[in-house]
Amino acid sequence: MTTANATVPERAVPPLGGFNTTLLRIELRRLLRNRRTVIFSIVLPVVFFLLFGTGKDYSLKNAGHGNVASYVMISMALYGAMLSTTAGGAMVSTERSQGWSRQLRLTPLTPTAYIAVKVLVAMLLGGLSVVVVYLAGTFTQAQMDHHLWWETALIAWVGSLVFAAFGVFMGYLLPSDNVMQILGPGLALLAFLGGLFTPLDQMGQTFQTIAKLTPMYGLSELAHAPLTGDAPGWAAVVNVLAWLAVFAGGAAWRFRRDTARV
């Protein structure tokens, strides 16, 4: 080390704002190390699927291009993906409360790269939720046209980006160490309103009208549509895009406030 030279020492700045695969790998391992997250986001949806989707008298009934078991499988994959991506995004909260976000500002990692990692990790965990439920489906009674497995899984997974954004937004909004304990019941309600636990057409008219405005409704419609064969209405597409805009916008707003608070 030079101590008294006339020039500033040459030092490189990392590319991509510090984004790298080591960071991604350690972050994912960290999320999976959280027993609560694994049980609620990965294990529970599978258990729900096995309990309510298989072995019932309705399980093998026709649901369009497949059976009811596969309908429930899609629902539970969505539920798992929703919990996983929200939990992943909401890690921001823990990191802020532990002072880690501040520590990261003493590294070359840019705030944008940080959020990109959070969203990617959330999506990877969401993908794992979907895969695990679908695997349980292949070993049990779920049946649908071959290509529908891929289509519905992909829609459920990509669509859960809405909840990754939701998680990040809430992570900034709620400065708590256990933000998922606050969000858990709310997410269950959203899943219910999205028709993941009970088909919405079995509910009253007022309930259905309200449900259509909630964040899981559109995604649920889109993910089930290939199976049921019913074309999803524009309302579903608008619902997904609108909530994505709301949550991503909210996250961006809090994020900018957070980085500008200096």
Binding site: V8, P9, R11, A12, L106, P108
Partner: peptide, 14 residues
């Protein structure tokens, strides 16, 4: 550039 780094009083660890 990695020219300056710091040991803070509290926090900053996961």
């Amino acid at each position: 550039h990695g020219l300056i780094s710091a040991v803070m009083q509290t926090g900053g660890l996961l």
